[in-house]
Amino acid sequence: MRMSLRACMWAPARLCRSKPMASSAHSIKAVAPATARPSTGTLRRRSPRMRSAFPYLLVAPAVLYLLAITLYPGIFAIYQSLFVVRFVKWTWAGLDNYERILQDAEFWAALWNTIIVGGLSLGLQTVIALALAYFAYRDPLIRGWRIIYLMPMLFMPSAVAFMWKLAFNDGRVISDLLMTIGLTHGNVDWLASVWLARLTLIVADVWQWTPFLFIIFVAALQGQDQEIEEAARLDGASWPAIFWNISLPMMRPVIVVAVTLRGIDITTMFTNVYIMTQGSPGGATETMSFFIYRQGFRMFNFGYASAASVLMLAMTILIAQTLVKRAFRSGRS
């Protein structure tokens, strides 16, 4: 009795289910040829070669665009660096440009300035960003309002440079402030001293770019495993001890990548130099970018400038590559 009742219950369901399935299959069969035929027709007209090339054609515009603005100028620079270029007159020079550059005191000075200004600036902003991130990451307000801290980064670089030029040199705002709190008597001539001039560049760069590192560090700290933090609390670690012993080592790959990106950016520092100091006093703030610009667009030694660019590119790649590689290798083991 029970068995038969179950069978009765199943029977209509099976009937019900089979019907619409059959009809839907039928409808697909009926519709498919009508819509599919024209499209297969056009596809068939394409040659097999065309068909295999199609995906490449789709990405071609983007690839061409990228090649045109990165690879082509790069190769052009390498090519040009082998010539002495006087406007339209190119004279083959081989590696002469490189030989002359390596003996050029101005080149070495520019390299040194870049390292000094860039290194101090990078170190300073990394430390400040880490410190800020450490104090801020547990604050719920930071989560919601990260974008506010990005503000300096969103301003146009030249506008920022002009702002600091006004504050340091033309407007003497900083000098006034220093006088008010009694640190200096009289006006400070920021461009008269090598280190003060460099300081203005460093301050401007730190002000604009610390937020970039700060945001990345805060994200890394907020992303770390909460349980590990709690375990460390119960093991008796203070917040600074947790940060120093656990958070910081775990953040290492993030720190290295962020600092490398920032470092690459800093080696090409140009806007602030161009607007704020023009390399003065006596070339003490002339960075590599400004040196290249001066050789190319003021003295029109295009071959020479190209050679300097190539050298700088090679150095940047070499340093960045070793840094990143080392950071990730030791992070893994």
């Binding site: 349980e227 008796g236 775990m250």
Partner: peptide, 21 residues
């Protein structure tokens, strides 16, 4: 009294070992 001063040890579900050590 703060967690670190309670002299209490805890074993977590996810172990919470320090991966860098």
């Amino acid at each position: 009294i703060d967690a670190r001063d309670r002299d209490v040890a805890m074993v977590f579900q996810g172990y919470a070992l320090y991966p860098n050590m």
